[in-house]
Computed example of a mutant assay.
Amino acid sequence: MIPQLVTVRHRRRDGHWRRLYVPVLPVLLVLSPVLLLAVLGGLVACVIYRVSPVGALRGAGRLLCALPGTRIEIEQSWTALQVSIR
C-alpha cells in the first residue's frame, strides 16, 4: 500500500510546534507531469549504466510500499523536525 498522508512537525525557536498534513495522492496528481519526466530520466539512466529498467522500477515500487510507518526525527539546537509517513 502506498503512503496516504505525510505529517511534518517543526518546532520553532520559541518552542511552539507547527504541524503540516500533506495528502500524498493529490500531490502526486498535481506533480504527475514532473513525475513522468523523472521516470523517463531514470529509464535513460538505467540504459546508460546498463541496469535493468524493470528491476529498477520494481525496487522503487518496493521502497514506496515500505514507507508507511516510517518516522524521521531530527533535532539540532533550538529547532526540531519530525516527519511521519502513514
Rank of each mutant, 00 (worst) to 15 (best):
V34R: 10
C46H: 00
E73P: 14
R18M: 12
P26S: 04
T7N: 09
V6T: 07
R12E: 11
V54I: 15
G42S: 04
V39F: 13
R12G: 15
L81F: 03
A80V: 02
P53E: 00
M1Q: 11
L40M: 10
L63E: 09
A56R: 04
G15S: 03
L28I: 08
L31K: 06
P53G: 00
R11K: 03
Y21A: 13
Q76N: 15
W17P: 06
S84M: 05
P53S: 01
H16Y: 11
R11Y: 03
G41L: 03
V6W: 01
T70G: 01
D14N: 05
S77D: 12
P23C: 00
R9Y: 05
H10L: 13
I2V: 14
S52I: 06
T79S: 08
Q4W: 07
R12F: 14
R18L: 14
Q76D: 14
V30F: 10
R12D: 13
G55M: 14
P53D: 01
R86K: 12
R12L: 13
Y49R: 15
V39T: 14
L29A: 10
R50S: 07
G42K: 01
V47W: 15
R19C: 05
A38G: 07
V24I: 02
A56E: 04
I72G: 07
G41T: 00
L36F: 14
V44T: 06
L29I: 14
E75A: 07
L67R: 05
A80K: 04
Q76Y: 09
W78P: 13
G42M: 02
I72Y: 08
R58D: 11
G69C: 03
L81R: 07
H10W: 09
C65L: 15
L37G: 08
R9S: 13
R9V: 08
G61R: 11
Y21L: 12
L35F: 07
L43S: 08
L5F: 01
L64D: 00
L63F: 05
G42V: 02
V44Y: 11
V22T: 05
T70R: 10
P68A: 02
G61P: 01
R58E: 10
R18C: 11
L67S: 02
V39R: 15
V27E: 08
R71V: 04
L57K: 01
L37H: 05
W78M: 10
I74Y: 09
L5Y: 05
L25G: 09
R62L: 11
I72P: 02
P33V: 03
L43Q: 08
L37S: 03
W78L: 14
S52C: 02
I85K: 00
C46A: 04
V27I: 04
M1R: 13
M1V: 12
A56W: 04
H10F: 13
R62H: 10
M1E: 11
S84E: 08
A80R: 05
V44E: 06
R19K: 10
G55E: 15
S52A: 02
T79H: 09
L63C: 05
V22L: 09
R11P: 02
I72S: 04
L29P: 10
E75S: 04
